[in-house]
Amino acid sequence: MEPRKILLAEDDEMLASLLKYRLEKEGYAVTVRSDGKAVKQDISAQLPDAIISDIMMPYFSGIELVDYLRNNLKSDIPIILISAASNEENVISAFKLGANDFIAKPVSPSELLIRVSKEIERFYRT
């Protein structure tokens, strides 16, 4: 089976490389993007199997990304958001717009892996 493709949108290089390493170790194919514009271009061209995105991204925030994905691209692929501030308002609007899950910084990679595999399984099983 071909590995699941994950788009990781995170502008903190350190966190990005740690998560990339752990996701790849788990068998995913990971593309890292460090700004919102690039993410938007990427998903407009071709959708990955799942998206993990920081909320605070330059140019195009994670919230905007959820909105764009669900309402413009009409896609239901799993998207998990990461944010340092567990700013309740942000989280609620992300869920309202259709984010699947949310994880607060500092991110525990093991926790993230479980959440990612759960969402992917649920979405692609059916």
């Binding site: 290089e13 350190m14 490389s17 740690l18 390493y21 752990r22 170790k25 525990s108 093991s110």
Partner: peptide
């Protein structure tokens, strides 16, 4: 803690620390 997340990969730890300093 972060070393534990690196699953024993000391090269990765070095890389992360390098990125940390850069940040």
């Amino acid at each position: 803690a972060i070393y534990a997340e690196c699953m024993g990969q000391s090269e990765l730890l070095d890389e992360l620390v390098r990125l940390f300093k850069q940040n």
